[in-house]
């Protein structure tokens, strides 16, 4: 049908030339041409000849430029340009992902997920050693530097050596840091500077500083990072040589305008662990 009336197409193209967004012009040309075809068919049905019907249809449309200018007034090019820009951005981001992935050899930048805590610790009693294990769930929570710190898992262990009669008390805990930005990464200051105190006034310095500050050899806080997800980071840490009579241990961090503390009660059902 379109090819039978090239004059319709020429008129439509002249009118559509006024549309500011070139991407929309084909659709406008198609709509105008179909409208003229319909008008032409109506004139043919009234008994006009083909040439007369075509001429009458063109006359009914009026001036192409005037019509085009009127169409341009109601047409909104902004969405057209926005759609084009969105497609370009999509292609560019896909290309960037491919390039970066190739540059990295398609390896993920870090391992993802948390492992089972305390998997390397001995928890069973033997003929010569007795280990009393208690799992705690402290509700302590602290915020510092944009991170939120919690203790999702704490294990208290009393160790008795039946051979030499010595005993030790230790705390093993998972310190979790949450940050709403995936670009935050590990809060490394915690591992190096966190220390602990108990209700009896004993200090458990970070291993970094233990030789300088520890009054009792062996008392320290230390640990390692053990896993991360998109927004969470975990350390498995320990407080060693906890005082046998301590009723709580408080983890503390204090550095340059930033400080927090997390208390771990060592009493369960009213009894000292």
């Amino acid at each position: 049908m379109l090819q039978q009336h090239p004059s319709f197409r020429r008129w439509a193209e002249q009118a559509a030339a006024h549309i500011r967004f070139p991407g929309d012009r084909p659709a406008v040309i198609r709509e105008l041409t179909e409208h003229m075809e319909d008008r032409c068919d109506a004139f043919l049905a009234e008994g006009l000849s083909k040439a007369e019907a075509e001429k009458a249809a063109l006359a009914a449309m009026g001036d192409a430029d005037e019509t085009g200018k009127a169409l341009a007034l109601i047409h909104r090019p902004f969405l057209g340009y926005l759609y084009k820009a969105a497609k370009i951005a999509l292609l560019a981001s896909a290309a960037m992902l491919l390039l970066v992935s190739c540059a990295r050899g398609f390896d993920m930048p870090y391992s993802y997920g948390f492992s089972e805590p305390y998997s390397d610790l001995a928890t069973e009693s033997t003929a010569t050693h007795v280990r009393e294990i208690t799992y705690l769930s402290p509700t302590a929570k602290a915020e510092c530097g944009g991170y939120t710190f919690t203790l999702p898992s704490v294990m208290h262990r009393r160790f008795y050596d039946l051979v030499d009669g010595t005993s030790h008390r230790s705390l093993y805990f998972v310190l979790e840091a949450f940050h709403p930005s995936p670009a935050a990464f590990w809060p490394e200051g915690v591992r190096e500077c966190i220390y602990a105190v108990d209700d009896l006034g004993n200090l458990y310095p970070n291993r970094c500083f233990s030789e300088r500050y520890a009054e009792d050899e062996g008392r320290e806080v230390c640990g390692n990072g053990t896993g991360r997800t998109l927004l969470r980071y975990r350390y498995e840490m320990w407080v060693s040589c906890v005082d046998p009579d301590a009723q709580w241990v408080e983890l503390r961090y204090e550095r340059l305008n930033c400080s927090f503390s997390l208390r771990i009660p060592l009493v369960k059902d009213g009894e000292l662990l």
């Binding site: 510092c144 530097g145 670009a183 935050a184 200051g189 500077c193 550095r255 340059l256 930033c258 400080s259």
Partner: peptide, 11 residues
């Protein structure tokens, strides 16, 4: 600035 945040320096 990121290193400062990771180090939990509050300034």
């Amino acid at each position: 600035r990121r290193a400062e945040r990771r180090a939990l320096i509050g300034m």
